[in-house]
Amino acid sequence: MATLNVAGVTKRFGTTQVLHGIDLDVTDGEMIVIVGASGCGKSTLLRIVAGLETATTGSIRIEERDVTALEPAERDVAMVFQNYALYPHMTVFQNMAYGLKIRGRSPEDIRRRVAEAAGMLEIQHLLERRPRQLSGGQRQRVAMGRAIVRDPKLFLFDEPLSNLDAKLRVTMRAEIKRLQRRLGVTSLFVTHDQVEAMTLGDRLVVMHQGRAAQIATPMEIWSHPADTYVAGFIGSPSMNFLPGVMEAGAVRLETGLLLPVSAPLADGHKVTLGIRPEHLLIGNGGLTLAVELLEPLGGETVVHGKLDNGTTVVAKVPTGSVPGDTLGVILPLDKLHIFDAESGLRL
């Protein structure tokens, strides 16, 4: 159990700048999910915290101890890899015990800790098997077990669920969260899956092009996204974006609709209005969509449509409520997000 402080971490591979100064303070026992599209630098950040990469500049402190220059083993962290990285020639027991053995723990101590972790993960009956005799979910548990037995200051998860099938992923997700709560170990969890991020994290770090676009709780990110990238990345289906111009203290959309949304901007300033598909209401007097595609999900249907000017709009409405080829939707003012069209930042 420990705090983690990442301060001004940058990383450069040759001429490519991968991280542009990341600051992150994690409190004791917190679960932080780092989420972003591939290539945004999220794995690099995790590997720098683990000590597998060195930061070009900046520092890492674990429990107020500067570990920037330390080897991974000296940082007292445990990592769960995407492909689990279980040693194929060792049994499950040996895999879990290896880190303890190297640290010179006594055989009784090792046996006790492994048994305890195995009990927690319900893999006691697998201890004598080899990794190749295990299913994906079981391997995942063993990889977790290998991290737990060490009783580390920090858990690092590098997309540990992406090799599992959809159903198992949901189960393991819940299990990871339960375990993390129970053990109270400070954790960093890297994923590209926004559902995983929303459900697992106490706080999220949304990464975009080597920067932390927003660091906040899942609900804060969902309800107050810091910029258009975060707004479009979190939430499914993605938020709709409508270009508009400020006009007499309100926003004039390209379709001609004038929305009385106040923003302290001069007339003629270009903005982007954002609205989530689930917030669009059926009704006349707003926008008219030419329906292109319906995706029934059961109780709800996702409607893909186009405005006159060609902008694509997605709406999530109750199934059976789409009358025909066109659909009128209204935009509730309190659900609108206004972003600066140029910088993409929230206004």
């Binding site: 683990a50 597998l52 990285a85 040693y87 190297i102």
Partner: peptide
């Protein structure tokens, strides 16, 4: 990853 896991294992 084996190398990295071993590094973290010490």
């Amino acid at each position: 990853e084996y190398v990295e896991a071993a590094k973290i294992d010490g």
